[in-house]
Amino acid sequence: MSKKNRSYIYLLVGLVAVVGLSFPLEASVNSYDMRIIINIGISMILAASLNLINGFTGQFSLGHAGFMAIGAYTASALTTLVFGSAEGVTQELLFLVVLLAGGITAAIAGLLIGIPSLRLKGDYLAIVTLGFGEIIRVILQNIEPLGGSLGISGIPRYTTFIWTFGILAVLIFISENLMRSTYGRGFLATRDDEIAAESVGVNTTKYKVIAFVIGAFFAGVAGGLYGHYNSLIRPLDFGFLKSVEIVVMVILGGMGSTWGVLLAAALLTYLPEALRKIDLFGVSLSDFRMTIYSLALILLMIFRPQGLLGNFNPKEFAGRFKKNGQSKKSKPAVS
């Protein structure tokens, strides 16, 4: 397996595994558990897409749910209002088209929002993205054809295990390849030190906007998946709380570590379900869910701000082994 096509082989293996797993899962897992699994997949897409902005480029966005909302509304509206009576198109093709449309609309919104706001730094950027997220929500509430605050209902349930995790595999492929390339290094350099990055010719604004647009695209796709699984979407579903949930996944997983972030997304989506089943003195622990959640967040920041997985850096980790005698391996194949 050569280095050149390694990522493609991983992608292929991933996609085959997703398809392969789907059959036994569809057959044996009940619909309640399946819902949890799909929700985990959607959370993973959201978290990994925010990780591109937040973890890799260091731009703190608190409005990711806004992009999810745009994608969800675009895709769902297309399915229910426009393509509802389309004939001669397979359901799969239609779903692909509406998901892409949702992603692209969200990406355009990301571009429009990103260009002016990414000049801001730190908590100012956090606040302005929060503001944009809220504005998107309020605007959706006021568009009557899209159901106003009642939202869109009766969306056909097209989202499946294969769609969700297949898209996740593609996103992982993209973000891992990006990180090992010209663009990824530009992202990380921008995160580490913007002034230094500019001083070696990196157009930091361009890199930040690109990361923002890609992140918004996948948040939009995740929104489409969400809408076509829940069959009901309301502006309320995409509020500030949702944005914070996604941010917490990225932070808990350790900003910039794709695998850590995916793990955190799974954990944080599953945990509330697990807590729901535990009774303590007659009170369901799920009532305490958000109290525990917020306390955990505070304690995490105080004691382990680098996230649960810490500064796990596969490259550094691998580098430790290479030092012992075989440093040639990291060198390009010079004869």
Partner: peptide, 30 residues
Amino acid sequence: RLFPSLSVFDNVRVGFNNASKTGLFGSILQ
């Protein structure tokens, strides 16, 4: 002002970013 979380090699590699002809899609599709 180095990029503290990048390796020495990658620090220098960033300096070549502008000379690189690889675009966004080249970076993704490789």
